[in-house]
C-alpha cells in the first residue's frame, strides 16, 4: 500500500456537464424545434387527440427499439424483428380460428416472439454466426412461414377484448400503448444504466474478448438480448394486431429498418459500445413528430421516408463534416 495518500479524483467532469454536452441534448433540441415548427405549420397539430393519435406512429416500433438498442450496443443486430411480428401475429390469428381467448392470444404472441429470439440467439451464440446474416435469413424464414400459412389471405375475427391492447385508452387521451411504451422505456433504462447486466452489455460492445477475459459470460448475455428483442417483437405484434384487427403476412413490412434508424438516430453507435435509452426515447418522438407533422401537411408517407433517411445520414454526417471543416 502506498504510504503517501494520493487520492485520484473520481471524475473530472460532473455527470451533469457530460449530459449537457451529449448527443441526447442535441436531439432534444431538434425534437423541440420540430414540435414548434409543426405547431406553426398546422392549426391541427396542438390538439390533444391528434397528438395522442400521433403516438401510435412510434410506440410499437419504439418498444422493439429499446431491446434493439441493447443488442446493437452489445455489437449485434436483429433484422428479423418485423418478420417476428408477422409470425407472432399469424400464430395469434391461427389461434383465434381455433377459438382461443384473449389471454391465450397474448401468451401465444409473446411466446412466438421469445421462440424466434431464441432461434436467432442460438444461431449467433452457439454456432458463432454473424448476426447480420443470420437475421437476414430468419427475416425471410419467419415471414416466409407466415406466407406459407396465409398466402394472400388474412386472419380476422379477433375478440373485442383483445383489441383493447391496440385501441384502448387508460385515461382520457392516454392510450394503453403509450403507457406500455413508457413503462418499457423505464424498464430498459434501468436495465441498461443501473444493473450489472447493463454494464456487461457495454463491456461486451466495447471489447467482447476483453469482457470474456474478465469473466463475463458473453454468450449468455447476448442470448438474453436476442430473447428480449424477440419478446419485444412479440409485444409489438400483440399491440399492432390488436390495433389493425387483422393479420396479413405483409404486416409491419420494413419495420426493421425504421427500428434500426430509431436506435441509430438515438445516438447508439452501430459499431457497438455506446448509447442510451433516453436517446432512443427522444429519437422515437422525433420520428413520430416528423411523420405526424408532414402527415398534417398532406405530405405522402413515402416522402417522409426521405426525411427519415436524410435525418439518419445527416445526424451522423453533419457533426463529422463540422469537425472536418474546423480542422482545415
Amino acid at each position: 500500500m502506498s504510504t503517501t495518500e494520493r487520492l485520484i479524483p473520481d471524475r473530472l467532469r460532473s455527470p451533469m456537464e457530460q449530459k449537457l454536452k451529449s448527443w441526447e441534448t442535441l436531439l432534444l433540441l431538434v425534437a423541440i424545434a420540430i414540435f414548434v415548427a409543426n405547431s406553426f405549420a398546422s392549426p391541427y397539430f396542438l390538439n390533444a387527440w391528434n397528438l395522442s393519435d400521433a403516438t401510435f406512429n412510434f410506440t410499437e416500433k419504439a418498444m422493439i427499439a429499446f431491446a434493439m438498442a441493447l443488442l446493437i450496443i452489445s455489437g449485434e443486430i436483429d433484422l428479423s424483428v418485423a418478420s417476428i411480428i408477422a409470425l407472432a401475429s399469424t400464430a395469434m390469428g391461427a389461434a383465434v380460428q381455433m377459438g382461443v381467448g384473449t389471454p391465450g392470444l397474448v401468451l401465444i404472441g409473446l411466446g412466438v416472439g421469445v421462440l424466434c429470439g431464441a432461434f436467432n440467439g442460438l444461431l449467433v451464440t452457439r454456432m458463432g454466426l454473424p448476426s447480420i446474416v443470420v437475421t437476414i435469413g430468419t427475416m425471410s424464414l419467419f415471414r416466409g412461414i407466415s406466407f406459407i400459412v396465409l398466402g394472400d389471405q388474412a386472419f380476422r375475427g379477433y375478440p373485442a377484448s383483445f383489441s383493447w391492447f391496440g385501441q384502448g385508452y387508460v385515461w382520457w387521451v392516454i392510450s394503453f400503448e403509450f403507457v406500455l411504451f413508457a413503462i418499457i422505456a423505464v424498464i430498459y433504462a434501468v436495465l441498461l444504466h443501473k444493473t450489472n447486466f447493463g454494464r456487461a452489455v457495454y463491456a461486451i460492445g466495447n471489447n467482447a474478448t476483453g469482457a470474456m477475459f474478465s469473466g463475463i459470460r458473453v454468450n449468455r448475455v447476448k442470448f438474453i438480448l436476442f430473447l428480449l428483442t424477440g419478446l419485444m417483437s412479440g409485444v409489438a405484434a400483440v399491440c399492432l394486431t390488436a390495433r389493425l384487427g387483422s393479420t396479413r403476412p405483409s404486416i409491419a413490412t420494413g419495420w426493421e429498418l425504421e427500428v434500426v434508424t430509431m436506435v441509430v438516430l438515438g445516438g447508439v453507435s452501430i459499431l457497438g459500445g455506446s448509447g442510451t435509452i433516453i436517446g432512443v426515447v427522444i429519437a422515437a418522438f422525433v420520428m413520430g413528430l416528423v411523420t405526424f407533422g408532414l402527415g398534417l401537411l398532406n405530405v405522402p408517407g413515402i416522402v417522409m421516408s426521405i426525411v427519415i433517411g436524410a435525418l439518419l445520414i445527416g445526424v451522423i454526417a453533419l457533426p463529422r463534416l463540422w469537425s472536418m471543416w474546423r480542422a482545415d
Partner: peptide, 19 residues
C-alpha cells in the same frame, strides 16, 4: 484486446469481474 476494455473508464474496468 484481452486485458482491458480500453474505451471504458478505469473504475468500470476494475469492477468488471466484481460486479
Amino acid at each position: 484486446k484481452q486485458g482491458a476494455v480500453l474505451d471504458l473508464p478505469i473504475f468500470q474496468n476494475i469492477t468488471l469481474p466484481s460486479l
